[in-house]
């Protein structure tokens, strides 16, 4: 039986300081099933994942907390220990090193730590691991690009978009208004600006 009271306590505890910790957990799709959650972690500063927000699908087995939670990245990540195909994670504490004293929050924080300290010798994704070991600069560039493309919300980095469009020769006020009207989509805004 899933320990419901523990899960509820964990959710409260985790979301209390999400601004500081950078991790948060909500029920999956706003449903009411406590065994299916989704977690969010922010990319650690000073890594190619900086500025990204990563979604993680969490499903709790009935034996939780005596069995580890099942976690998988929903957001695509370029990382030696995370499958670039399906987001599967290779992390010992989610497998044989799980302990009931660990919580969902500590597991998510461990994932955050994994992003800053990849283990290419124990890879989940061999291609990424090869690249990490042989062509590190390429790896960093790819990881940063993936973060940019998949892990950044449209609302994030609106200042940069404004800056970009302003550099193209449009007035700042106009750019801001246009961006707002298209919900922050850079390409749509450019199209609108060019046509109007």
């Amino acid at each position: 039986m899933l320990d419901v009271s523990r899960v509820q306590k964990e959710l409260m505890e985790c979301n209390r300081d999400k601004a500081i910790s950078g991790v948060s957990i909500v029920l999956h799709d706003g449903g009411s099933d406590l065994s299916h959650l989704s977690g969010t972690i922010t990319g650690p500063v000073g890594t190619p994942y900086e500025g990204g927000t990563f979604q993680i699908d969490i499903s709790l087995p009935s034996g939780y907390p005596f069995e580890p939670p099942k976690m998988q990245f929903i957001t695509k990540v370029w990382h030696p220990n995370i499958s670039s195909q399906n987001g599967a994670i290779c992390l010992d504490i989610l497998k044989d090193q799980w302990s009931p004293a660990l919580t969902l929050k500590t597991a998510l924080l461990s994932l955050q730590a994994l992003l800053s300290a990849p283990e290419p010798d124990d890879p989940q994704d061999a291609v990424v691991a090869q690249q990490y070991l042989r062509e590190y600069p390429t790896f960093v560039a790819t990881a940063r690009y993936w973060t940019e493309v998949f892990a950044k919300r449209t609302s994030v980095g609106i200042e940069e978009k404004v800056q970009k469009l302003v550099e193209m020769g449009f007035s700042e006020d106009l750019v801001k208004n246009t961006l707002e009207s298209v919900n922050g989509d850079e390409n749509m805004a450019l199209e609108k600006l060019c046509s109007g």
């Binding site: 034996g63 497998k95 044989d96 799980w98 004293a101």
Partner: peptide, 18 residues
């Protein structure tokens, strides 16, 4: 606990969770 596959029963389960 009959642990999940791959767990080292003789150590992981006997060990303090913390």
């Amino acid at each position: 606990n009959s642990p999940a596959s791959g767990m080292d029963v003789n150590n992981a389960v006997r060990a303090c969770p913390i």
